[in-house]
């Protein structure tokens, strides 16, 4: 079992339990939860908080008509309703990512970002956040960068380290506005992660700083 050892903060997990956070963030947390029984147990208790709060609401009575209409329909319901997609049986792709990755990660239209990094954008969230997969070559390094918004990362395969520590499969990281970091993939294998970036990132090296105007433009 590889249990993740870097976890989302409690208030973020609570927002997930309430489903009151941007879906792109929820996506990262959901991936982490698939691999982290400890956070899964916390989530059970957080769900109970939601449940208790719901019980304390002042009931808003429903019209009898609503009940009768539903009771009349019950017999016809049984079959039609199996809308939930079935997860691919042997896939290593987390269930919640299968809506974007239908088969294999390799089949995606990867784009070169630098000598060490490939990326593919999966979608944008309604708050403008960019949801992308990043692939870092073994021993490869991302350019040192800071963020204009928060960056959420969850590691799907492999591992990387940055100034703050070492991260492995399932680990969750949140880097805020002013954190500067340089992720470096481990030597023995490439590192695949999902990154959600809530604003353009800022490269801080001298030459790479020259790239900032172009990057920012692509966010418009």
């Amino acid at each position: 079992m590889n249990n993740a050892n870097k976890h989302p903060e409690d208030e973020l997990l609570a927002a997930y339990s309430a489903a009151s956070l941007p879906l792109s963030q929820a996506l990262c947390i959901s991936i982490h939860l698939e691999r982290c029984p400890d956070c899964g147990r916390k989530l059970q208790r957080l769900n109970r908080v939601g449940s208790e709060l719901m019980q304390q609401l002042k009931p808003a009575p429903a019209a009898d008509e609503l009940k009768n209409r539903l009771l009349d329909r019950l017999d016809s319901l049984s079959e039609e309703n199996s809308e939930q997609a079935h997860p691919l049986p042997d896939s290593t792709v987390p269930r919640c990512l299968q809506q974007f990755v239908h088969g294999n990660y390799d089949d995606l239209p990867w784009r070169r970002v630098s000598a060490d990094i490939r990326s593919v954008e999966l979608c944008r969230d309604s708050n403008g956040a960019r949801v992308e997969l990043l692939k870092i070559k073994p021993g490869g390094s991302a350019i040192t960068h800071t963020h204009l918004g928060d960056e959420y990362t969850v590691i799907l395969e492999g591992s990387f380290s940055d100034e703050a520590g070492l991260y492995g499969e399932g680990d969750f990281l949140l880097r805020g506005k002013h954190d500067k970091h340089t992720p470096v993939a481990s030597l023995h294998r490439e590192c695949l992660c999902l990154a959600v970036t809530e604003g353009p990132i800022q490269f801080t090296g001298f030459f790479s700083r020259l790239m900032n105007p172009f990057i920012r433009r692509s966010y418009a």
Partner: peptide
């Protein structure tokens, strides 16, 4: 209400 292509169905799992 959300302008996004992200489908929440498999994100918030049912117990």
């Amino acid at each position: 209400r959300y302008l996004t292509e992200i489908d929440p169905t498999d994100i918030f799992n049912e117990i």
